[in-house]
Amino acid sequence: MKKAEIVMTLMMAAFSAYLMWKSAELSVGWVEDEGPGGGAWPFWLSAIMFGTSVWSLIRCVRGASLPSQSDEPFMDDFALRSFLQVAVPLGIALALIHVVGIYFSIPLFMIYYMRFLGKHKWPLTLAVSISTPVVTFFFFDIALRIVLPKGYTEPMFYPLYDIFL
């Protein structure tokens, strides 16, 4: 835990420094007749972030923070496995949205999750993973007119648009 906290505080300190540098693209000081410049607010807040990250780091090294007192690993085998089994496929599903669109990516993700992680039977898996996108389509694409991304499968939806829109 302690190592993970040190890494996290260092990363956050670096991120804060980057934010400070990025905010400084706009004026961070006082602009005559305009008040504080456009970069001032994020700049000084990032400066506080940097300060608190260093503060957290010191507390961690001295063993004053809760995670630094814990002997448990940041991620044990179970945690790491369940994290990777969920977060990575979710990322893949997002990437697939760009290619095959949300209505093919989502069922694939749900089938993976329910069949292979949840060990549910095929009929249940298929029922849920097919009905969810159907409901979604009618709610968002039809009722709300929020057209969800379809990637290269867009032409397949033209007949549906013709009927419902």
Binding site: V86, A93, I102, M110, S129, F140, L144, I146
Partner: peptide, 17 residues
């Protein structure tokens, strides 16, 4: 394991909408 994928899907759509 049925609820979780549905919630993830709602998150994706909710983030997009």
């Amino acid at each position: 394991s049925i609820l979780a994928p549905i919630i993830f899907v709602l998150c994706i759509i909710g983030g997009f909408a």
